[in-house]
Design a protein around this nucleic acid. Structure first.
Length: 636
RNA sequence: GCCCAUAUAGCUCAGGCGGUAGAGUGCCACCUUGGUAAGGUGGAGGUCGGCGGUUCAAGUCCGCUUAUGGGCUCCA
């Protein structure tokens, strides 16, 4: 007899020696049996026909569970690989995992896959799904597995097996005529994959290493129901409408030109948004006792040798000659800030010293990596360098984390924190790195902020806490960061005079809140779908005249608003009011002020709010107060 | 940097098999003076991303190149 304990604590008994999750599901209900894709037995994800031989805890996984969804997508990728191999014999298969919202499989093929091929592959997949082949698991010894895949000509699989740990159980799955190396689990059969779509082809290096061969990766997604697939595809369409590159164009915020790949041009409205963000930043930083500096864009090569950039960051730097000497355009602001620190003698009594800098940096990013405002070659960092005593580290980091949290809160952003540790190409002793990593970790833990660890992704001079924000498609981008640095103070021989009247080395952190103002604006545009809150809107109120009789009053309103510091525009064109409203609405202007006879008589404005429609007439004075209040509070 | 795709008017896009370009929108002018998401008529705008080749003839075919998009790699 076997006792199965379910997640709700209930226990079911089976009068047999072996029971499968499929049988357990059937014992609960036929519906659940049909919906279940895989199971978790004693914490391990397994197939529905996994033999359970002893009393166990079991939970059934459906598409609603993350593991169930992954199983579903993973099986989908097998079906795609099978279809590709059927249609293009000789194709070698590499890896095909489930990913967020879908799956991919990497192929090595003489044939170059085209969008038309994707349709053919989908047709073949449909056929395989209709066959409803069972996914059958088989375990085998390493040598046998290697032999099998050698015979199949699957070199990548052989390489994968060779890299598995000595004691690893090697399992393969076969459905219909297709066999693949796979840890599993899989769906009971191919017939479950009712709705799928192949989305695009992309190049991808084998094992993500650019020294390896480039394979062809096909991305797709799949769902148990057709309607779910349609919903997802609609969501993608909707997301495209929020794309900051599209909105940036439509709203006249910024533009990119062939003449400056990766070097965005900010148009008047985009520049306004940028300046409003910087104004906010300056207010916060003044409140937090930062002082602002400005350091040169171009500095002598010697400085970059001192900082280590010349050795560790040279590939990303633009260099130039001035007279006979080598110079570089700064890719980071830190060396300049350290020079400012070194310009004076410092006492421990001054600490912490917080130097802020709105600094434009240039980095040579790979051409293929450029992406709208999100990845550019010139951007503005809202930088800060803090110099302090070792015992101030933890509190200072906490201050900075709280400050970044406050700023992101202002925009209603969800964010993720990652702690990045020592990369391969780095400077400094193991001990320094361990200390640095430990103090960052401790600060986060004491604040109770959840975070994940990103191994080997630190800066070359120290570990860092990264704040990541999402774009409209759920891609994450690093924005804020706090980087601890034990290296630069040594390299620049930074010192302070301590209580003991001796020279000591200060601790330094580098930190940004927005990160790159350009990237942050990109995220902002997508987050608000271009409809900025009143305080950030480049045009806060658009004055729309009914007829040209109303132009004088409209201009009076305009002048009064401008005098009060409200960003207004007048649309006195010879057009109907519906037309002007439509245009202002598409430009996502928060307030529209309709001016007709009624308004002129009562010294009022006909208020219409973006997203809310006609709000009726309001005395001009009241409207002014309302906007000023919202602007001052920076309300969402 | 690598793989694939794309590049036509300010913007969004049409242009089967090669025969020197078209729509909508925007812009300008005129008519219309209209109360909450597109009023009407007319006009101006393009050496079809760039360079080279094939051809009597190239937006269309070929090569190279630049930029953009989707990824990989790398990073704020």
């Amino acid at each position: 007899m076997i006792k199965i304990t379910l997640p709700d604590g209930s226990v079911r008994e089976f009068d047999q020696n072996v029971v499968t999750p499929f049988e357990v599901a059937g014992d609960i209900s036929k519906g659940l049996q049909k919906k279940s894709l895989a199971a978790k037995v004693e914490g391990k994800v397994v197939d529905m026909d996994f033999p359970i031989e002893k009393d166990s805890e079991l939970s059934l996984l459906t598409f609603e569970d993350e593991d169930g969804e992954d199983t579903f997508r993973h099986s989908s990728s097998h079906i795609m690989a099978q279809a590709v191999k059927n249609l293009f014999p000789g194709t070698k298969i590499a890896i095909g995992p489930a990913i967020k919202d879908g799956f991919y499989y990497d192929f090595d093929s003489e044939h170059v896959f085209t969008p038309e091929d994707l349709e053919k592959i989908e047709k073949e997949m449909e056929r395989i799904v209709k066959e409803d082949n069972k996914f059958e698991r088989k375990e085998m010894p390493r040598s046998e597995a290697i032999k099998l895949f050698q015979e199949l000509g699957e070199d990548y699989k052989v390489e994968l097996i060779n890299d598995l740990p000595e004691d690893a159980k090697i399992s393969i799955y076969t459905d219909g005529g297709f066999t693949d190396l796979c840890a599993g689990p899989h769906l009971p059969s191919t017939g479950h994959v009712k709705a799928f779509k192949l989305l695009n082809v992309a190049g991808a290096y084998w094992r993500g290493n650019s020294d390896n061969k480039m394979l062809q990766r096909i991305y797709g997604t799949s769902f148990p129901k057709k309607s779910d697939l349609e919903n997802y595809l609609n969501l993608l369409e909707e997301a495209k409408k929020r794309d900051h590159r599209k909105l940036g164009q439509e709203l006249g915020l910024f533009t990119l030109m062939d003449e400056g790949p990766g070097f965005p041009f900010f148009l008047p409205k985009g520049t306004k948004v940028k300046n409003l963000l910087l104004q906010y930043w300056r207010e916060i930083h003044e409140r937090e006792n930062y002082v602002e500096i400005e350091t040169p864009i171009i500095l002598n090569k010697k400085l970059w040798e001192t900082s280590g950039h010349w050795d560790h960051y040279r590939d990303n730097m633009y260099t130039l000659k001035i007279d006979e000497d080598d110079y570089a355009i700064k890719p980071m602001n830190c060396p300049g800030a350290f020079m400012v620190y070194r310009n004076d003698l410092h006492s421990y009594r001054e600490f912490p010293i917080r130097l802020g800098e709105i600094g434009r940096v240039h980095r040579h990013e790979l051409s293929g990596a450029l992406h709208g405002l999100m990845r550019v070659r010139a951007f503005t960092q809202d930088d800060a360098h803090i110099f302090m005593l070792p015992e101030q580290i933890k509190d200072e980091i906490k201050n900075v984390v709280n400050k970044i949290d406050e700023i992101y809160e202002k925009f209603g952003f969800k964010y993720r924190i990652e702690l990045s540790t020592r990369p391969e190409d780095s400077m400094g002793s193991d001990e320094d790195w361990e200390n640095a990593e430990a103090s960052l970790k401790k600060a986060l833990e004491e604040l109770g902020k959840p975070f994940t660890i990103n191994e080997g992704d630190g800066a070359f001079y120290g570990p860092k806490i990264d704040f990541k924000l999402e774009d409209c498609l759920g891609r994450t981008w690093q924005c804020g960061t706090i980087q601890l640095d034990f290296q630069m103070p040594q390299r620049f021989d930074l010192t302070y005079v301590g209580k003991d009247n001796e020279k000591h080395r200060p601790i330094t952190i580098h930190t940004v809140a927005f990160g790159s103002i350009e990237r942050f604006i990109g995220i902002l545009i997508e987050h608000f779908a271009g409809a900025f809150p009143v305080w950030l809107a480049p045009v806060q109120a658009k004055i729309l005249t009914l007829t040209d009789k109303h132009n004088d009053y409209a201009n009076k309103v305009y002048n009064e608003l401008r005098k009060a510091g409200i960003r207004a525009e007048v649309d006195s064109r010879n057009e109907k009011i519906g037309f002007k409203i439509r245009e202002a609405q598409l430009q996502k202007v928060p307030y529209m002020l309709i001016i007709g006879d009624k308004e002129v008589e009562n010294d009022a404005v006909g208020l219409r709010k973006r997203g809310e429609g006609d709000l009726g007439a309001l005395p001009l004075g009241e409207f002014k107060e309302r906007v000023l209040k919202e602007t001052q509070e920076r309300s969402l």
